[in-house]
Nucleic acid binder design. Structure first.
Lengths: 255, 255
DNA sequence: CCGCCTAACCTGTATATACAGGCTAGCCGC
DNA sequence: GCGGCTAGCCTGTATATACAGGTTAGGCGG
């Protein structure tokens, strides 16, 4: 009667392991959009779990838009899970170099710290867990263009602090260690606090664009970061399709 | 034992009825952000369902970002935040109504004008072409929440100005006339000019989120708009996957 | 050959039960 | 009075089971 055995891998939860396997097969291309996914009873047999557990895995993937289910028919891979490049997660250094400018990173802080409530919550770790923290100012032609305050999950990228952030941005390093499978951006306009203002070299009343970004690799949160940009000088763009990327003056601005 | 009786109301599914009741209490204000929600066992007693069913209702509401749960503590109403999805275009009136609030539009201006260089460029028309222009302030519960300055391509929507924008948002009207096939969002943080500040009722130094949006129908630019939101209160969100929309305190903010 | 019915398979919902582990209030002993 | 332990409540996960209703293929009878 199949005791509730602990699964072997690092991830203990059965429904997560089922989700990860299906996501991996989609990522590898073994499962194509429109393809039929194993039915609940097939997953029960394959993973040795109960049907409710298989159901939960499939239902959550449906919620997330990965799968499409219909009673009596089966479960299928959603057609358009490739909405690529909508709002790119891009390496700030690439963006700067693309403009033909020079990029330089100044590492202000890099070290270990204990996660406070907010950080623990964001990284899905327990309160007080040790996390890695870095504070980097990115310069474009010797002018500050972004302050990056980052917290990294040591379970995913244990050697984060040994990277040299002057030659490789945290983003570059982390995508190498753990490919990004999901992201979240929350954008706000804020009045920067004095420290940020100093790093960005801003006047007192200059607004700031603050992007809170989290990235996942599989089911694990890899990192979260607060990115501060000097307000009006920076544009964050999101497009539905690749083109038209033709730059246009924003109304109300002198070109 | 408790037989699996059919619930009385139109909605038969138990977990849906539990979700609806909780959502109703939040909409009515009986449950405020941060308030504790009935525990699973309390719902079991109140609705006569099994714990798994109560669990499902609460878990789905957590997925949807309505509730926040933590083991050992309980289930709580998520802090309300105003947010807009950057990766899709929605009707602001719908968003407000979904939050259980009332929407009202104040038409400040509506008329014809000749396109200046920026507008002509954005709408892909020639300089000096006649375009339609509207300036609308959207109110949520009688508080200004968005200033919408819009320019419309008369070749696509010639009757734009005859619409009644108090009963139908420009977005609603335009999507009816010309379905959106592509869009572009450019986000900046700006210091609002005095007029915008007045419309939004902001203090002098309060930053603003400005979204420049263009939408296409086929190959033609339908409209472009400058949307101003009160800065730190408003969040633009972009995520690669639908769930989990579990709200997380942005680092550095008190929740 | 065609139409109907059924068996097999699928998801959707619901139940009762179990064990784990986080958290807290209160009691007990020192 | 104070520290530590425990009982009780909470969520998280997992199990086995049940019945419903949608869909399809195949078999049986006219």
């Amino acid at each position: 009667m199949t005791k509730a055995v602990k699964p072997a891998a690092g991830e203990a939860r059965h429904y997560i392991r089922i989700k990860e396997q299906i996501l991996a097969e989609i990522a590898e291309g073994k499962l194509q959009p429109g393809d039929r996914v194993s039915s609940e009873s097939e997953l029960v047999a394959a993973f040795g779990v109960s049907r409710m557990t298989a159901n939960r895995a499939l239902r959550e993937l449906m919620f997330e838009g990965v799968l499409k289910r219909s009673a009596g028919i089966g479960t299928f891979v959603s057609p358009k899970h490739l909405d690529v490049d909508l709002l790119q997660i891009r390496n700030i250094a690439d963006e700067i170099l693309e403009r033909g400018h020079t990029h330089q990173a100044i590492v202000v802080k890099a070290g270990l710290m204990k996660a406070d409530a907010n950080v623990a919550d964001a990284l899905e770790l327990i309160l007080g867990a040790e996390v890695m923290h870095s504070l980097i100012v990115h310069m474009e032609n010797d002018r500050p263009i972004q302050v990056e305050e980052r917290y990294v999950n040591p379970l995913v990228a244990p050697d984060y602090l040994s990277a040299d952030f002057r030659s490789m941005t945290p983003h570059e390093y982390l995508t190498e260690v753990a490919p990004i499978t999901a992201f979240e951006h929350i954008v706000q306009a804020v009045k920067p606090d004095p420290a940020i203002r100093k790093y960005l070299g801003l006047r007192n009343d200059h607004p700031c664009l603050r992007v809170f970004r989290r990235t996942w690799s599989g089911e694990a949160v890899v990192t979260c970061a607060l990115l501060y940009y000097p307000g009006a000088q920076y544009r964050l763009e999101a497009r539905s399709t690749k083109g038209p990327a033709r730059p246009v003056a924003i109304l109300g601005e002198k070109q």
